[in-house]
């Protein structure tokens, strides 16, 4: 059971094909699997569908796959920050399925837990509810949302041991655990692979059972909206 691969390209070997559904972790540019996205661009695989909260920015994140026209459809909650995305979206080259953010996260979690659908109040009475089954429970109306079962998950964690037990850092956790859970195969990139036994078992955020392949690499970790306050000058 060797999970560690030398680099992103080797970790994805044999897993990529045209028309596949990929679940990706990250929120904005925070905690995105930047090395695996680059390797997917290098592979040239196309007509991809991404379940990912956002679509990156021009030249970073999923944005790099839009530049090369490798993405056919996005399942996302918010996509505002990407000119090339908007161009392809407005011209009809790119399909988008808007999901409320919590519905998207729960669809991933549910898929990973073997749950094909769940009822939620989110979106009742809005465009999101159109065409979906409605059902009343205890006098309240809910809509049916489907679990996502992805062909592949690509996620980013802070540290993992050699068996894939993973720890995330601060808000870079975001969609990574649910995205990792919902794929048939999950490839994870981390900043550091540590020896098995060196992580406290009580502090694992994502157990290695969800992680099939693992790489370590250097991350740029770009900041999307750098916002600071001035230090009080004494």
């Amino acid at each position: 059971m060797k999970k560690i691969f030398a680099n992103a390209t080797e970790a994805l070997d044999g897993l990529l094909r045209d028309d596949m559904l990929i679940a990706a972790g990250g929120f904005g540019l925070c905690g995105i699997p930047e090395l695996l996205l680059q390797a997917i661009q290098d592979s040239g695989v196309k007509d991809l569908t991404f379940a990912s909260n956002n679509a990156g920015v021009d030249n970073f994140g999923i944005g790099i796959l839009l530049e090369t026209r490798q993405v056919r459809k996005m399942m996302s909650s918010y996509v505002g920050e990407n000119d090339e995305f908007m161009r392809q979206y407005l011209s009809g080259e790119l399909e988008i399925e808007f999901n409320p953010q919590g519905t998207l996260a729960e669809r991933m979690r549910a898929g990973g837990c073997g749950i094909p659908g769940f009822y939620t109040r989110t979106g009742v009475g809005t465009q999101v509810a159109e065409g979906k089954e409605h059902k009343d429970f205890d006098g309240e109306t809910y809509i049916l949302e489907r679990g996502i079962f992805a062909d592949l998950s690509i996620v980013k964690a802070w540290k993992a041991d050699e068996t894939g037990n993973a720890i995330f850092r601060k808000t870079a956790r975001n969609f990574n655990p649910p995205a990792a859970m919902c794929g048939k195969v999950c490839v994870m990139e981390v900043e550091e692979i540590v020896p098995t036994g060196s992580l406290d078992p009580d502090h694992i955020h994502l157990p290695g059972i969800y992680v099939h392949r693992l790489i370590q690499g250097e991350h740029e970790k770009r900041i999307e909206q750098r916002t600071v306050q001035k230090k009080e000058t004494a």
């Binding site: 540019l29 995330f168 649910p178 770009r222």
Partner: peptide, 29 residues
């Protein structure tokens, strides 16, 4: 403060922020 931004620590508007003593982190689900 300037120079103390952490790319792993942002709010829902994608702005850099800070944590407090009471802070807890969790996943999107």
């Amino acid at each position: 403060f300037e120079g103390e931004e952490d790319p792993d620590l942002i709010n829902a508007g994608k702005q850099t922020i800070t944590e407090l003593k009471r802070t807890a982190y969790f996943d999107s689900a």
